[in-house]
Design a protein around this nucleic acid. Structure first.
Lengths: 152, 152
DNA sequence: CCTTGACCTCAAGTCAGCTTGAGGTTGCAT
DNA sequence: ATGCAACCTCAAGCTGACTTGAGGTCAAGG
């Protein structure tokens, strides 16, 4: 047999390693597991063991969060992957592209808002009646997710 | 005396009018009062009366929220106005300009993120170690306010 | 063998920005 | 005078994304 350097140490890691590698708190990872975003198996002594590849799953969560997605949306995005499988490069690319359009529309919205604000500075009104800025049609879409996301 | 059309009806309005004019719930307005964002006086029967100009204050709150500011920040912005005075057109302009730069930097951040994501789609990595996207320095700034705003 | 640190489970708490509900009062039109 | 919508207070609940705490177990080194 050829000397294969692969199988580099066991693939199962405890939760602390994931925490260290991702910067997440242990409690957060447990919470994600509870939410079904990642899965683990248990040792004889009831401790969680994760796949090393779950670091990537967690990275994805973190990145998607940065883009303003909520865990529920992330879950949906994740679920679009072949069941249980850890994502391949191609999967990541597909999802990344969907995130990209997310960002795009967010930028567009902000830009529109900025333009309206510019007009507004011109007139100085900030009146609900007349101000372009305050327009029900695209309320609640600029700020990203959060408590007040569901304004309308 | 000249016929002055001013003083158009009494300047004090009950909370329901404010609610109708702004689209806010009555409970929300009461909450804002509790937070000190607007003030009211009371009638003999302990009902709130607001100044008509508070509609504009509330508009400002709404608009600032759309731009992603939290109530605390809005409070600070408001407090920068001459004490108790209802803002003039000039005040609004000053504040609007400050909001504008808020939006500007937000757009910039998103644009940078998008560019990184583009590189990322190229390499397909999404790895915490190497990915440009996942970079502590400007974490937590893209998503706007919300529960997870304080990431670092 | 024993200690220490990493791990475990629940339950409850936190923050923001409100809403909902119960139970009671006011004020304007008829 | 009365009816009823609009107002009041205060306490508790809600969502999202976690954290904190109490009280206990596991695993590896000295």
């Amino acid at each position: 047999m050829l000397a294969k350097p692969a199988k580099g140490r066991n693939d199962l890691v405890p939760i602390g390693v994931l925490a260290q590698r991702t910067g997440l708190a242990v409690s957060a990872i447990r919470y994600y597991e509870e939410r079904g975003l990642i899965a683990s198996i248990r040792t004889g002594g009831n401790q969680r063991r994760f796949l090393r590849s779950d670091i990537r799953r967690l990275s994805f969560i973190l990145i998607a969060q940065r883009l303003g997605l909520g865990l529920t949306e992330i879950e949906r995005e994740m679920a679009s992957l072949p069941h249980g499988r850890t994502p391949t490069v191609l999967d990541w690319q597909r999802i990344s592209r969907s995130l990209r359009s997310e960002i795009d529309s967010r930028i567009q919205l902000l830009t529109r808002t900025r333009n309206k604000l510019d007009e507004c500075i011109g007139c100085g009104c900030l009146s609900l009646d007349r101000c372009q800025l305050y327009n029900k049609e695209d309320r609640a879409s600029a700020a990203g997710p959060g408590p007040r996301f569901v304004l309308d």
